[in-house]
């Protein structure tokens, strides 16, 4: 195949500009002070440049998070685009850190930047991975927990992209319910 002049020189633009955040738990500091913006990108090439220069999730210490959010949305419940929303949560078993975590987080990132959620992509705010000694978690955050068609579509695509077995059930929790819970259990608003 002949390359036309200039082809291959231009980067491939993404639909959205994305921001990568890093959270490192330091109990001596306020939660907000532990959250750091790493960088923003809006092309396929710049995504890979960033990805290949960042520590794989499985190598982070417990208590750390990565978050990838659309530019302008902060990875916290309080942001106006998150406060009425919720998250599709995938909880991993401890031993999956070595076998699955990096692959599942990459699939999550690719589904976000590639706009896998079709007409409901607007509802997607970002994704978070929590590295925790009791079990790691990956979640996709959406902006409106009451938008059932969007939330359930996003959940089905997320589950499919992660290659989870149909037998595995994942749940969606409203941030408002998570924020006000009195114990570690938050009820699922939807499951797929």
């Amino acid at each position: 195949r002949k390359l036309s002049l200039g082809e291959g020189l231009e980067k491939h633009p993404l639909e959205n500009r994305w921001a990568l955040w890093f959270f490192k738990n330091d109990r001596n500091r306020a939660w907000r002070d532990n959250l750091h913006l790493v960088t923003k990108f809006d092309t396929v090439e710049d995504f890979w440049a960033l990805y290949s220069h960042t520590q794989p999730v499985s190598k982070l210490s417990s208590g750390c998070d990565y978050a990838l959010f659309k530019d302008g949305i902060e990875p916290m419940w309080e942001d106006s685009r998150n406060k009425h929303g919720g998250r599709w949560l995938v909880s991993l078993a401890k031993q999956q850190r070595q076998s699955d975590l990096d692959r599942l987080w990459l699939e999550t990132l690719l589904s976000l930047i590639g706009e896998a959620f079709e007409e409901y992509g607007e509802e997607v705010c970002g994704a978070v991975v929590n590295v925790r000694s009791k079990g790691d978690k990956i979640a996709i955050w959406t902006s409106e927990a009451e938008n059932q068609p969007a939330v359930t579509f996003i959940g089905r695509v997320f589950k499919e992209r992660l290659g989870l077995s149909p037998k595995v059930v994942i749940g969606y929790q409203a941030h408002a319910d998570t924020a006000t819970k009195s114990n570690s259990f938050t009820k699922n608003k939807f499951v797929v």
Partner: peptide, 20 residues
């Protein structure tokens, strides 16, 4: 239209040398 890329397309760029 919306800029959508499937995973295989995106993965093709993972180990590409940087454009000069």
């Amino acid at each position: 239209g919306k800029k959508q890329y499937d995973r295989e397309f995106l993965l093709d760029f993972q180990f590409m040398p940087a454009c000069i």
